[in-house]
């Protein structure tokens, strides 16, 4: 495989994007999961699809857009979706989760319209739904690199504020932190990560890379920083094992990565149970 990676540019693109996403998705995922926002990631990925389907439609219909990379409109849709969700959450204060189905169905509805306008399903849209190794372009890789940079910059700058906000929002507000602005920024960064991840694992599976490694990590880690560290390790392991086995077995990479994450999660859950049992028997 290493020879193939050295030889083929598309494999390099897929491999490096995968490795980067394996870090940033679980890294941000820790904050998403502890703030109980996992479903928002799902809603945003469906909004991203609307942007991508819209872009595919534009590039088919108008020659001036024929070279437009769908990832850009995907990012625009995802970021607008995240801001809309926030608006809806403040509008329905007592039914905050209502924002999720509204945005999600809106995203799928728009996607369906654009897909039918663009004369039905084709391989392009399939590669966005389930991810694809061969479809990752060098331009996509650069977009992923840029988004990773934004994620690191955001967390490097606001790590302590994000911790306070995630742990206890009321305390954050009472101590005078600009909770609202930081939260909005966070939502935008989440939208960016979702747009970045969908090229490899696909829209339908994006939230898995954000949540599954974190779910496994929370079983074994002690403290917040360790939870982040283990989440990244599990995420990276899933991407590596998934991509390599997808390459050799000729499987869809998104699916392989997600199934690998689930296997890791199961191993961690069972391992923890076993360890507790052994410990109990010793005592």
């Amino acid at each position: 495989m290493i020879e193939a990676i050295l030889q083929y540019e598309f494999l390099q693109n897929a491999f490096f994007s995968g490795l980067i996403i394996g870090v940033i998705a679980p890294l941000l995922g820790v904050f998403i999961v502890v703030r109980r926002m996992s479903l928002i990631a799902d809603a945003l990925s469906h909004v991203t699809l609307a942007g991508i389907a819209g872009s595919l439609y534009l590039s088919q219909t108008f020659t001036m857009f024929s070279l437009l990379n769908p990832i850009y409109l995907g990012i625009v849709a995802s970021v607008s979706g995240s801001i809309l969700i926030e608006r809806l959450r403040t509008l329905y204060k007592h039914y905050e989760e209502l924002a999720i189905p509204i945005i999600m169905s809106g995203g799928i509805g728009l996607s369906a319209i654009f897909i039918s306008l663009a004369s039905g399903f084709n391989t392009d849209i399939m590669s966005y739904l389930f991810g694809s190794v061969s479809a990752v372009s060098r331009q996509d890789l650069w977009v992923v690199v840029a988004i990773a940079f934004v994620v690191f910059l955001f967390l490097f700058t606001f790590f302590k504020e994000m911790f306070v906000l995630s742990f206890d929002e009321e305390f954050a507000k009472a101590s005078g932190l600009p909770a609202k602005s930081i939260h909005l920024l966070f939502m935008v960064v989440v939208a960016l990560v979702i747009a970045a991840s969908m090229r490899i694992v696909g829209i339908l599976l994006v939230s898995s890379l954000i949540t599954l490694p974190v779910a496994a990590s929370m079983r074994v880690a002690k403290g917040f920083k360790q939870t982040i560290l283990f989440s990244i390790l599990f995420g990276e392991a899933a991407v590596l094992i998934g991509l390599v086995s997808a390459f050799y077995l000729n499987l869809a990479p998104g699916g392989t990565i997600v199934v690998t994450s689930i296997v890791i999660l199961l191993i961690v859950i069972l391992g923890k149970k076993l360890a507790l049992k052994i410990k109990a028997e010793r005592v």
Partner: peptide, 8 residues
């Protein structure tokens, strides 16, 4: 269930 130590 928040994964944080007392110190954090």
């Amino acid at each position: 269930g928040f994964p944080a130590t007392v110190e954090e």
